[in-house]
């Protein structure tokens, strides 16, 4: 039994942390995400040069990486390219190479209005004709405005690759401005076949593990801010961190995050190894980590007092990402129902 990261993984973590602190500090984030286009397209090549878009990274490597990009709220289509789309194009060496080199940024268009919106739900109205032309309307597509092409789920189920230039992308006002959602309309858009829908279950599980990893980073960052504030702010002549009503909230946030961290590592390992408990491990990690991140942000806002409620403070940015991750893919209730089916029968 061995829970240790490899020395390469430890190095990846340190390198990512240093790079992000220097190149993508949180202080600079609001100016970028409140403006247009909402990210720095020139930064993508750098991420690719660091190897972050490489298909060689294992899921556990990506867990290490996404915790750091989560903590930085890195506004780039990394989650959408790596977590949502990469498994669907893996069989195509050319596409994989284009992603690795930074030429191709992707996202996944799966949800439709008025239908079940899980990644692996397949009762779809979007269709593809004999000439490979895709017609339909997708909603809640992450980072569609940043992507060069979209993996689109269509009736069958089948997966098609469509260039965003061949579709109509309408950005929606999104609470988490660092990960925007769009509506995408396809009107006989030309497409490339990527295979049947059998990979969707894997995409969902991987995306849940990486959402959990991001959430750990977001929660950790909110907790660090809370600790820093509680260690310096004085009221009634004492630092507020000496009040247990303050410090114990932060301890509980720490405990929730550490427990969720254990689940996330387990889930990543189980999924990568095809362990029989992979599905429930992933469900547990996704709900525990995203819930822990949301609660860590809420506790940190409380500990900050009035300043925690201001638009200028970074906390609401973290909070909204945590909420995004919690709402993404499946609710906690749905994931727990899945777990109940497995443990109770």
């Amino acid at each position: 039994m061995d829970f240790a990261f490899s020395s390469e993984q430890d190095m990846l973590r340190t390198a990512a942390r240093e790079f992000l602190a220097e190149q993508h500090p949180l202080t600079g984030l609001p100016a970028i995400i409140d403006g247009e286009p909402g990210w720095r397209p020139d930064s993508w090549k750098q991420l690719a040069d660091l190897g972050w878009t490489d298909d060689e990274l294992t899921l556990l490597d990506q867990v290490v990486l996404f915790e750091e990009t989560g903590a930085a709220l890195l506004p780039a289509p990394l989650f959408s390219t790596i977590a949502l789309a990469l498994p669907a194009i893996r069989h195509d060496k050319d596409l994989v190479a284009s992603v690795a080199s930074g030429e191709l940024k992707l996202s996944l268009a799966w949800a439709e209005s008025g239908r079940p919106q899980g990644i692996a739900d397949t009762g779809l109205a979007t269709t593809v004709d004999a000439d490979g032309r895709v017609t339909g309307r997708k909603v809640l597509v992450p980072d569609a405005t940043f992507a060069d092409a979209l993996v689109v789920t269509v009736a069958g189920p089948e997966l098609r690759l469509v260039r965003t230039a061949d579709a109509t992308v309408t950005p929606l006002s999104t609470s988490d401005r660092s990960r925007r959602l769009s509506e995408v309309e396809f009107d006989a858009a030309p497409s490339q076949a990527l295979g049947d829908g059998s990979v969707l279950g894997e995409i969902e599980n991987r995306a849940f593990v990486l959402a959990a990893a991001e959430a750990l980073g977001v929660g950790r960052r909110a907790l660090e801010d809370g600790i820093a504030h509680a260690s310096t702010r004085e009221q009634f002549g004492r630092v507020i961190g000496t009040y247990q009503a303050v410090s114990h909230q932060l301890v509980d946030a720490y405990a929730d995050l550490e427990l969720a961290r254990s689940l996330t590592y387990w889930a990543a390992w189980a999924l990568a190894e095809g362990d029989e408990q992979a599905d429930v491990a992933v469900a547990a990690a996704k709900t525990a980590a995203t819930e822990a991140a949301v609660t860590a942000c809420e506790r940190s806002i409380q500990v900050h007092g009035g300043v925690g409620m201001t638009w200028e403070h970074i906390l609401h940015r973290l909070y909204k990402r945590a909420q995004w991750l919690e709402a993404f893919g499946a609710s906690g209730r749905a994931l727990r129902a899945k777990i109940a089916d497995s443990v109770i029968g």
Partner: peptide
Amino acid sequence: DPVVRDAIAREWIELQSLAFTNYRTLTT
């Protein structure tokens, strides 16, 4: 009862998180 099922699933998640935290501790 779905409410009971939800509560039991919550306890399972907590239990697994404690078990794997122990494994982490053990590794360190």
